[in-house]
Design a protein around this nucleic acid. Structure first.
Lengths: 115, 115
DNA sequence: GACAATACATCACAAAACTATGTATTAAAG
DNA sequence: CTTTAATACATAGTTTTGTGATGTATTGTC
């Protein structure tokens, strides 16, 4: 497992919720492509991670699915539920808070008596 | 598992390497306390995570241990090896890069045609 | 004397993402 | 027209990493 993959742990559902929050309606494959675009290919969501994550979010009532046929191919659009919107705001806040805490920890000189 | 714990995944060894880089020499328990201080209690490294991580870093040749007796109690100080210094710089860089990528992903409005 | 803090350690478990695999349609390239 | 890539879903088994629980033992505090 590469570094980026390890760091990704715990962030996937927040990423999904955030993208749905900003777009209203997206389908699985679209999510993977959007993350790829927005991160310049640095973060790649794998299908084996994405679909189970979507199913869990749906089971937890955070998102709802709507299946649409595009020709003969099925496409499942997801939207946030009312509860999911709350969770989205909260988990985005928590993630940003964590990111700044981590950055502070890593960039601050850890010696005592820094004065 | 709480949110902070999930997000921590993949960051522990980098945190350890970074603290050793800044301090030269630290022991396990000290590391847990330093992280607690520097993060205002937001990130708590558990003993069950720390010691296996230290042993792995030692086995990989990134850190070296020196046992010291403080009275009758043993204390194991760790320092970076030459190889560990390189790994420290690299993994800190990767982590900071990941943090900024993630922040960008989460804070950028994900809609197309943002212009 | 009891309790909290210091200080190490290991094991069974859980969570989360991955790889590999599978199915199927559609677009592009040769 | 045929092969390959891209689109689009899905699941199973594996791996990684941190946790909780537990254990041992010393030292400081009330």
């Amino acid at each position: 497992m590469n570094t980026s993959t390890e760091l990704l742990k715990g962030t996937l559902s927040t990423i999904i919720l955030r993208l749905l929050e900003g777009n209203g309606k997206m389908y699985g494959y679209e999510l993977t492509q959007r993350v790829k675009e927005l991160t310049g290919g640095k973060i790649l969501i794998k299908e084996g991670s994405l679909y189970p994550a979507l199913h869990k979010l749906e089971a937890d009532g955070h998102i709802a699915a709507e299946s649409v046929f595009i020709g003969k191919r099925i496409r499942k659009y997801y939207i946030l539920t009312a509860q999911g919107s709350k969770v989205a705001r909260q988990s985005v806040h928590e993630l940003l808070d964590f990111l700044s805490t981590m950055e502070h920890l890593i960039t601050t000189d850890p010696r005592y008596g820094m004065a």
